[in-house]
Design a protein around this nucleic acid. Structure first.
Length: 886
RNA sequence: GGGCGCGUAGCUCAGCGGAAGAGCACCCGGCUUACAACCGGGGGGUCACAGGUUCGAACCCUGUCGUGCCCACCA
């Protein structure tokens, strides 16, 4: 389909400044309407699939999302152009604890709480929240230009995905890989839920180590209040100091209880007094010791961290109880060494920063050993590759030493644990097709699953698993998982474990590409407390989506953080405008492209030069993007576009275009062709401006579905043969640039106005390959023909390999001889130094004997070049007119 | 406590065994009709420090200092 908007373009359709707002939403909605982003599971094309790391419905997309989405969209768009059947599957995550916290905070502002509402009404409220913020997120993705398949949008709490959760839960349970047990878990006394190990962040806190006398033995602790729950004192079995006490009982102060002294390997005799108080209900190590020695567990705190042990401390908060217990002990004279400052790592809830309390409770766990091993093996044997590979050791270190995963959460928002308990202690796990037990005394588990349980199924569940859907067959395993290194363990590890388990060994993705974090201009983390957070939409409004995307992509070195700042987005905007104007120039001069080049015979050396460089650039871009090296690809394209194409080829094209005729015709075709290819190469990164320009230039349907220049994966004709390069013409262009630059430098130094035309002779040019381009050289260097009465007052000599070209100028006045002499003298100095270094190297038999051939050849060339420079510079110095006296 | 990474131009970063690079910033000169969101020219780095390996080191090895991150149930 060719819409009316596609036809009848004229040069005037392109304003002299690119205005993103006038094209972005128009093009985006058109792309969606035309179905370009919708995947066809029945197609014969090879698949390329990315499932989006689902953003949390908690809020809006931040710069990190903009970054991640830019990279994914770049991969997807390129593959689409290469002829793959591409699917970028969008969706969102219910994000259990995070979302619940946000909504609870909202309720608190309104003076109410989830307890006032009750479970059902609260969950209803969260769904309303999801409707509002989920909508915002989808709108932001459209602004970013994400070419996602909207017909396949998913949410982790959709019916289908919830069925997948029940399926895997039941399967794991039946295989003995999910179990329920009373264990010490990380408990957040504010969120009132269990946390998994990775939801706990450790910070160094200033604690106080207090030594307490338990009669014959002294123990040290940072958590004095827990002594109320002590049920033993442990010492090392080989510790002779305490050997006589092992097996005896001592009195626990303040409680009147008698507790045993036990011997346990875990105790480090060198630390503190070598004796440890044991509180099995409130410390993971102590719990282990308790298990080994059959000690009772005495819980002294409730779920909010309030002391429940009967006595004077009952009802105190844990942090009030600490000084209170200490004071009571001191009164009894039992504080034997005054407390001393002690820095140690304390766990905090990653969601609300509250100090985590180890707590004994009944929870559900996934037994991870075999699952984690499989996840490690998939990377070890190359089924899944991690990019950059330097991050692999981290992966192995983690999956090879992973604790069982606590999956139950005492929350209301999430997938409720599919387990029912009967009146007589029965326990039934309910799969998606099972009947839920009904009747007197049957009750479903009150808890929900850890949010990572459902997102761990994401690549499977979004494609329809456990059903054998067409999508699943076509697109699983997915091609790439692109995400931040910060959730390698939270999420990637879980998807690997579940994916491999559910499919009997098929990895969920062929590659994991890890990107860094977006930071501010000084490498600082973007965070609300620093006040350096920027909303991506602000920059999009200010500079356009393409500018933001380019800024992010060109900073994307694998696995490293990306600094961004307003200035850099501005620079990117400038570049987009540059590309805009280059195309505008071409279109205004009648350039078009139908993807074909003019007859090779008609091409000039300069035409071949730019085509050669274009081919090389395309090849580089392909190699870099295949390797997730976004920054390098951008750099390569950027420099070709601006420094070579715009600054030289476009400038050089002005003369033939002006002259008209066949030469102009060829130039127009080359301009059109190069831009056609260039816009295709740029499109995955900056989709909007390129699309608008390309339609103007080629009158084609859309870049989204145009062919990638270096060819389709399905074969067929290539637009650009990246193997066809012209080294001789590249050399010629380099020579031309050297001559022009040298003259410009001289002019600038002598203070000539850039536009001022100067009479000049170009000597020695005729015998070189540059001869046909004398007019172009004159045009770029602002040199006019030498007429009669030409009076040489200055000369610039440019050495080109063996030959040299002398440009003699009539400056109709005096030049600054002193300045020129100083410059030449300095250059001569450098050249002489070069000669010396090269001669020494080549005279060294060690070097000539051991260095590889190309290195020696290079050194010879370096010597010859420098020698030539010396001769040339000396003659130039001699030729300088005498300096005016006085 | 363990592990990983980084210290290269004023700033942010590439380069990771054969002549020190980019963007931005800076200095000089220009509205040369695609673009002043531009054009032309220029300055600027004992590649943290000290040893070592090598014909040759920013790049490999050792140590030191500085800095960042991840993991961690030693009271």
């Amino acid at each position: 389909m060719t819409s009316a908007a596609n036809s009848g373009f004229t040069a005037s359709d392109l304003p002299s400044v690119y205005a993103p707002a006038s094209v972005e939403s128009r093009l985006y909605e058109q792309w969606v309407e035309r179905g370009y982003f919708t995947a066809d599971a029945t197609s014969d094309k090879p698949p390329f699939c990315i499932v989006i790391p689902p953003p949390n419905v908690t809020g809006q997309l931040h710069m990190g999302h903009a970054f991640e989405h830019t990279l994914m969209d770049t991969l997807i768009r390129r593959r689409r152009m290469q002829g793959y059947e591409t699917l970028w599957l969008p969706g969102m995550d219910h994000a259990g604890i995070a979302t619940q916290n946000v909504v609870e905070r909202e309720l608190a502002k309104q003076g109410t709480s989830r307890y006032d509402l009750g479970r059902e009404a609260f969950v209803e409220r969260v769904w309303e929240w999801k409707a509002e913020y989920g909508g915002k997120i989808l709108g932001q993705m459209r602004r970013l230009g994400d070419s996602v398949d909207w017909s396949r949008e998913r949410f982790t709490m959709d019916a289908g995905l919830s069925a997948a959760v029940r399926t895997i839960f039941k399967r794991l349970y039946n295989d003995g890989l999910i179990y329920r047990a009373e264990r010490i878990i990380n408990w957040c006394p504010r969120c009132l839920t269990a946390l998994s190990d990775i939801e706990v962040e450790h910070f160094d806190d200033d604690g106080e180590l207090v030594s307490i006398s338990y009669g014959p033995i002294t123990v040290a602790t940072t958590r004095v209040e827990t002594m109320l729950g002590d049920t033993a004192v442990a010492v090392h079995p080989d510790d002779e100091r305490y050997a006589h006490l092992v097996g005896t009982e001592i009195e626990l102060p303040l409680t009147g209880r008698r507790i045993p002294v036990v011997a346990d390997e875990h105790v480090d005799p060198a630390f503190g007094t070598g004796a440890v108080k044991v509180t099995p209900a409130h410390d993971p190590n102590d719990f282990e010791i308790g298990q080994r020695h059959n000690l009772p567990s005495i819980t002294i705190m409730d779920e909010r961290g309030v002391i429940t042990a009967p006595g004077p401390f009952e009802g105190l908060d844990r942090f009030e109880a600490r000084p209170a217990v200490t004071a009571a002990l001191r009164e009894l004279g039992l504080i034997v060494a005054e407390k001393r400052p002690y820095v140690h790592a304390v766990g905090h809830c990653s969601r609300c920063d509250t100090v985590v309390e180890p707590r004994l409770s009944l929870q559900w766990f996934v037994k991870v050993e075999s699952l984690a091993k499989a996840a490690g093996d998939a990377v070890r044997d190359g089924r899944t590759r991690i990019h950059p590979a330097e991050l692999e050791p981290r992966w192995f270190a983690w999956v090879d030493d992973m604790h069982d995963w606590c999956i139950s959460r005492q929350l209301w928002w999430g997938h409720r644990i599919p387990v029912w308990y009967g009146p007589d202690g029965e326990l039934v796990v309910v799969g998606p097709d099972d009947e839920e037990p009904k009747g007197e005394g049957w009750k479903q588990d009150e808890d929900v699953l850890d949010t990572w349980f459902s997102s761990g199924l994401w690549p499977l569940s979004t494609l329809g698993w456990p059903d054998e859907t067409a999508d699943l067959k076509k697109f699983y395993p997915t091609s790439v998982l692109l995400t931040g290194y910060d959730i390698l363990f939270f999420w990637v590890a879980r998807m690997m474990m579940f994916g491999l388990y559910a499919t009997g060994g098929v990895q969920p993705f062929h590659a994991v590409a890890l990107h860094g974090m977006v930071r501010d201009a000084h490498g600082k983390k973007m965070s609300k407390s620093f006040g350096n957070v920027v909303d991506p939409l602000d920059w999009i409004d200010k500079y356009g989506t393409d500018a933001l995307r380019f800024t992010l992509a060109k900073g994307a070195n694998p696995g490293t953080d990306v600094p961004v700042s307003d200035e850099w987005v501005q620079g990117a905007r400038n570049f987009v405008n540059k590309l805009w104007n280059a195309t505008r120039f071409a279109v205004m001069n009648g350039a078009t492209s139908e993807g074909e080049l003019p007859n090779p015979q008609a091409l000039s050396a300069l035409d071949r030069w730019i085509l050669s460089r274009l081919a090389r650039t395309a090849a580089e871009v392909d190699a870099y993007l295949d390797d997730f090296q976004f920054a390098k690809a951008c750099d390569e394209l950027f420099h070709f576009t601006w420094d070579e194409f715009c600054d030289w080829y476009v400038e050089l094209s002005k003369l033939p275009l002006e002259r008209g005729g066949a030469e102009a015709d060829t130039t127009r075709r080359v301009l059109g062709y190069v831009l056609d290819v260039l816009l295709r190469l740029w499109h995955p990164i900056i989709p909007f401006a390129t699309e608008e320009l390309w339609r103007n230039l080629t009158h084609g349907e859309s870049l989204v579905v145009a062919a990638w220049p270096s060819g389709l994966v399905t074969g067929g004709e290539k637009l650009l043969d990246v193997e066809t390069v012209f080294p001789d013409d590249e050399k010629l262009a380099a020579d031309l640039r050297a001559v022009v630059t040298e003259v410009r430098r001289f002019r600038a130094e002598q203070g000539l106005r850039p536009a001022q035309r100067v009479p000049a002779r170009l000597e020695g040019l005729a015998s070189t390959a540059l001869a046909p381009f004398e007019n172009q050289i004159r045009s770029l260097a602002r040199l006019q023909e030498a007429e009669s009465g030409f009076n040489e007052t200055a000369g610039v000599v440019v050495g080109l390999g063996g030959r040299e070209i002398r440009v003699s100028l009539d400056l109709s006045g005096t030049i600054d001889v002193a300045k020129e002499r100083a410059r030449l003298a300095k250059a001569l100095d450098t050249a002489l130094n070069e000669v010396r270094i090269a001669e020494e190297k080549l005279a060294n038999p060690q070097f000539t004997g051991k260095a590889p051939r190309p290195v020696i050849d290079k050194m010879r060339a370096r010597l010859e070049g420098a020698q030539g420079d010396v001769v040339r510079l000396r003659s130039q110095l001699d030729a300088l007119p005498p300096e005016p006296s006085g």
